[in-house]
């Protein structure tokens, strides 16, 4: 785990540093700029999907699905981050407590 923590941190720092020394025309290039802008969107969306539907290598429907639906409603109403997270946790926790979902 320490390997992941330290290697991840070192790489992220290196990326920040590289930006301060490389010639600006490289990152100013339209294609590179667009890809850099879109990377977090595909990665985060993939993470959301996996965190909601995957259990190791199986696709499952469990309490996380209604929890994410509740979070979506909260996001539509522009709720603050902490509220969105709490609503999801409470939804999943409640359904499990009453045995309505695994």
């Amino acid at each position: 785990m320490w390997f992941a923590v330290l290697a991840g941190a070192a790489g992220c720092y290196a990326l920040k540093y590289v930006g301060s020394v490389i010639p600006s025309h490289i990152l100013e290039q339209r294609t590179v700029k667009k890809i850099v802008l879109l990377l977090p969107i595909s990665l985060l969306s993939a993470l959301v999907a996996v965190q909601t539907f995957a259990d190791s290598q199986n696709l499952v429907l469990d309490a996380r699905v209604p929890a994410l639906a509740a979070a979506t409603v909260a996001l539509r109403f522009r709720s603050p981050f902490i509220l969105v997270v709490l609503i999801a946790a409470v939804t999943a926790g409640t359904l499990r407590y009453f045995g309505l979902a695994v």
Binding site: P40, L68, A88
Partner: peptide, 29 residues
């Protein structure tokens, strides 16, 4: 039992939500 696995999914969703500003962004998502 505290729904923290669902909280991770929701937290990530809340991070990407404001970044989706166009139809292209949405299709990438």
């Amino acid at each position: 039992s505290f729904g923290l696995d669902a909280a991770i999914a929701a937290g990530l969703f809340a991070l990407v939500w404001p970044q989706i500003k166009s139809r292209i962004d949405l299709s990438v998502a």
